[in-house]
Design a protein around this nucleic acid. Structure first.
Lengths: 206, 206
DNA sequence: GCATGTGAAATAATTCACAGCC
DNA sequence: GGCTGTGAATTATTTCACATGC
């Protein structure tokens, strides 16, 4: 790959900049300075300029950045020009909650299918996205070239399921199980660990 | 405070170590080397030793660390010796999903109450935790000395609600809204931004 | 004059490597 | 011999500060 040079944290910030730019665009703004955009994103202006400099030059000195252009360049850099299909595996309490939540769709991801050991029960929970038995996983992923998966299975199954996903081509996993998943370096795992976040907070209160 | 010297990221890792230690303890292990524990936690052994060194010396050279003792020392360091009450504000799709999920309880946090503009609707969604109208927020927080809040209100209300929370003593906020919240430095905000995590993943797939 | 783009400086975090101790 | 604890070295990230260009 040719993008190993952008720091991981900068990539998270790109997403934030992208959101701020969309908001500015909705408000009819078409040029923004690094100072203004940085303030909206909660970072220093120098950091914003450095982050953008990792992948090109888009501003005009004395003026600022073109909102719409920068927005689409970031979208492209993040690989968001084309809609990415996403599957969700494990539609228990949290999984079916996320399916009903539709927070991903709002930001432009399409959750195309869910998988569970007991698909009937999930459908009964008011989930409208198609739910399949988890034995259909491999067939579906291969057939639909899915690259991204949201993993909400119970912690004791998480490693086994991720192995199956990776074997058929999943390259990115959003993992909600409180476990450190072992994957090959070509697979990216992002952990969302709600209890861990609360624990972290509890350190900072007195 | 006297703990400003431990890096933020090290604190997250402490929680992970703590989990691994509990598992080891459950399996009857009573001593563990930095190499073994680090492997379980997915970090380098040198990093584990450095992280622990931030707040003391607990190991025996040639042997390793005492599992139970280290576990309780970490718990104390994180401020988890005593149960912290937590409230949840905004019981819409995601909020009520989290209430039904009970993932926090499993890790030892007690969600004592939820607040929403429409408490009836939330109760109807099968939530068993008490739900109050959001006008009761201040009274409840003050009356029960709550310090931690989970924030799931729609993004356009997030800043206003966090202002109210902070005004009556909330010191830690787990924020699910895709917005950069402005708070005074004595308040800690942790953002869980699901769409942003997916976007981050989409950068790494090809 | 104003705001970008960027080397250089400062700061932070990680990893090495080994002395010290059981 | 094995494993911790820790300074020193390395690597990564952030911030500064200013030359450059509109």
């Amino acid at each position: 790959m040719g993008k190993i040079d952008i720091p991981k944290k900068a990539i998270y910030r790109l997403s934030i900049y992208h959101r701020c730019l969309q908001k500015l665009h909705d408000n009819g703004v078409d040029t923004v300075s690094s100072t203004t955009l940085a303030k909206a994103a909660g970072v220093k202006s120098s950091q914003l300029r450095k982050d953008l400099a990792y992948f090109g030059q888009f501003g005009t000195r004395g003026l600022g950045y073109p909102v719409e252009l920068l927005s689409s360049i970031i979208r492209e850099t993040l690989g968001r020009e084309h809609l990415q299909p996403v599957i969700l595996v494990g539609a228990g309490n949290l999984g079916s909650a996320l399916l009903r939540y539709h927070g991903f769709e709002k930001e432009g991801f399409e959750v195309v299918a869910a998988f569970d050991a007991n698909p009937e029960a999930t459908r009964a929970r008011g989930v409208t996205i198609p739910v399949f038995p988890d034995s259909d996983l491999e067939k579906f992923i291969t057939g639909n070239s899915v690259k991204l998966a949201i993993l909400c299975v119970p912690v004791e199954f998480a490693q086994a399921v991720v192995n199956r996903l990776v074997a058929v081509g999943i390259q990115g996993v959003l993992n909600f199980s409180p476990i450190v998943l072992e994957v090959t370096p070509d697979v990216t795992v992002n952990n969302v660990d709600l209890a861990l976040e609360l624990e972290h907070l509890s350190y900072f209160i007195r």
